[in-house]
Design a protein around this nucleic acid. Structure first.
Lengths: 109, 109
DNA sequence: TACTCTGCTACTAAATTAGTAGCAATGGTT
DNA sequence: AACCATTGCTACTAATTTAGTAGCAGAGTA
């Protein structure tokens, strides 16, 4: 699947509205999961694979390439890590952690 | 695909940690998009289809059922709408709108 | 009755993801 | 140097998910 670059055609928007490009990206399996796990700190490829139970290496690699191309993740000596932009993105979604706990309670789980 | 109910096995967590169930849900195509579009106000099935360019009715129906089962969306006389929980969820992700604009700028798009 | 609109189901084709095997490269050990 | 372990990833197939399209049942109107 093409990388959802803002300004190009993405799911939900012919013109590539930034929010639609972002939702397209985040709506792909494991995109959010990778960001979530990387927030715990940089990780090597295999370490990241373990943090994300069940992700296949080919898909992990695909997602990492997308996230790197879009400047959300970067690769350095200690492995993969969030960029400052990526960290900012994480900060926005961080409250989902608490929200999900309330949600689980309300669902009686 | 099974509905990612917190407490049951979901992608990324055998035990169904709430956050993993949520990320599984939101990581499905059009989940975030439907929530985003519904925030503009309640909509009938066909109206929602139009807000979400390109979504197929079968998938829209599948997503709606999931979101309803998980108490994020509700169905009433005026069609589909976010529940209070769903609105709270939207409030958390609302800043993604601005974030995506900065992001697009930095990417030079 | 006929016409329109809505909500949705059904079906097939295309695309994505899972699952697994394994290879090239790096670094330590002996 | 030969051997072994680890890492980063590619390749391939099978399973699952999504797109795309057709169309039907029911409600409202005229």
């Amino acid at each position: 699947m093409a990388i959802p670059i803002p300004g190009t055609q993405v799911r939900g928007s012919q013109t590539g509205k930034p929010i639609m490009a972002l939702l397209d990206l985040l709506g792909r399996t494991w995109s959010l999961g990778v960001i979530w796990q990387l927030q715990q700190g940089p990780a090597t490829f295999r370490a990241l694979q373990q943090r994300c139970e069940q992700i296949s290496p080919s898909l992990l690699n695909t997602r990492l390439k997308e996230l790197i191309a879009l400047n959300i993740v970067t690769k350095n000596d200690s492995g993969y890590a969030l960029t400052p932009q990526g960290e900012h993105l994480f900060n926005i979604i961080a409250p989902l952690g608490d929200w999900s706990k309330d949600w689980a309670k309300q669902l009686g789980a």
